[in-house]
Design a binder for these strands. Structure first.
Length: 155
DNA sequence: GCCAACGTTGGC
DNA sequence: GCCAACGTTGGC
């Protein structure tokens, strides 16, 4: 099983939106970056991911989700009216993919980016999301990073 | 294949 | 709103 970190802007879609969905499950669509897409396609049912809030008051990890459906074509790319429309993605040859995720747990407090950075030269020294200039919306997380961050969240 | 221009991301 | 960093595009 692999671990991931998935970014979203909570003003658009945050962990509380996911919590209110039927079965607390939603499609993670709108990824329009090739590297992030490739990671999406590596995800397997049962993989766990941190739900990261970006571009907001409290930037950081808000909770945990799990993959419940593996990559399938992102329909929003086919819809000219959608913000994420991409004329180069055709239904018979889709360029973009999405997965479905289900809420596992919302942390009682967001683990702030500041807090994560405190460990940027220690336990989290290789964490992708802490690297300078990182903009990837989907990044892999190692097992040790995962366990350490979970311990920061408390049980 | 290079690289400048451009658009986007995302922390602050 | 600013701006650094980055990915993508397109002319050559």
């Amino acid at each position: 099983m692999n671990h991931w970190l998935m970014k979203s802007e909570p003003d658009t879609f945050g962990i509380d939106h996911l919590a209110k969905k039927p079965k607390q499950t939603a499609g993670w669509d709108g990824v329009r970056n090739f590297q992030a897409r490739n990671f999406l396609r590596e995800m397997r049912v049962g993989d766990l991911a941190f739900f990261y809030h970006s571009s907001c008051d409290v930037v950081g990890i808000a909770g945990i989700v799990k993959v419940v459906r593996e990559a399938y074509p992102d329909r929003t790319a086919f819809d000219p009216k959608d913000d994420h429309y991409d004329a180069d993605s055709k239904p018979d040859q889709p360029r973009w993919y999405m997965v479905d995720v289900q809420l596992v747990r919302k942390f009682d407090h967001v683990i702030a980016l500041d807090e994560l950075r405190k460990h940027a030269s220690g336990k989290l020294k290789d964490m992708v999301v802490l690297k300078r200039g990182n903009r990837l919306s989907i990044t892999p997380v190692t097992k040790s990073e995962w366990q350490f961050i979970e311990s920061l969240a408390g049980k």
